[in-house]
Simulated scan of single mutants.
Amino acid sequence: MQKITPFHVAVPVHNLDECRTFYRDVLGCEEGRSAEQWVDFNFFGHQFVIHYKPKSEEEDAHTNPVDGKNVPVPHYGVVLPWETFQTFSKDLIEKGIDFVIEPYIRFKGEPGEQATMFFLDPAGNALEFKAFKNMGQLFAK
């Protein structure tokens, strides 16, 4: 299997301080460089940046059906090792995260079976975390 290269993603937030606290204290991401308008985080080994953007008119939330659930679009996240997902999801439940889709097993018994969960950050950005017992199933058809 090919070595995984860390990705970089930047997301807009209208409340930099609240989101900084969320990613650092709730999700446990180590804070990196920052300036008045942005903050870098180590997002499970990837570079994740929140950038201040003034709040605009609310867009209607969009979802697509996947495995009988309404998945928010757009969303971002990472694929975690199975045990890390289990520990992380339990920690989020204990912290009272309001899930859009609570942790569950998607595509049970099918190719690509995975654990997944969705929730929003304080700026309304949708996050998905998932895990495969067999990482070889990541792109299974």
Rank of each mutant, 00 (worst) to 15 (best):
M117L: 15
E30G: 02
I50A: 07
S34G: 05
D121N: 13
P6F: 09
E36H: 03
K55E: 05
N64K: 14
Q137M: 13
H62K: 14
G96V: 02
L16I: 11
P103M: 02
V100C: 11
H51I: 09
G32K: 13
D17G: 00
R33P: 00
R24W: 04
A131I: 05
L127C: 08
P111G: 01
L16M: 07
A123K: 08
Y52W: 15
E102P: 10
E57P: 00
Q47L: 11
D40L: 04
Y23W: 12
K90L: 12
P54T: 06
G96T: 03
T63R: 11
H75R: 09
E94C: 05
P111Y: 05
H62R: 15
E83S: 08
F119E: 03
K55P: 00
D60F: 08
Q37R: 13
E31A: 11
L27I: 11
V71M: 11
V11A: 04
N125R: 02
N134Y: 13
N15H: 08
P103C: 01
F48N: 00
P72H: 06
P103H: 02
Y52N: 08
V49I: 15
D121K: 14
F118C: 10
G68D: 06
T87N: 14
G28P: 09
T84H: 08
P122E: 01
G28D: 09
A131T: 07
Q37Y: 11
N70W: 00
E31S: 07
V39G: 07
K55A: 03
I97Y: 12
F129L: 13
S56A: 14
D25A: 13
I97M: 11
G28E: 08
F7T: 11
Q2I: 09
F132K: 01
E59T: 15
A140P: 09
D17H: 01
A115Q: 12
I50W: 10
E30I: 05
T116W: 03
K130T: 09
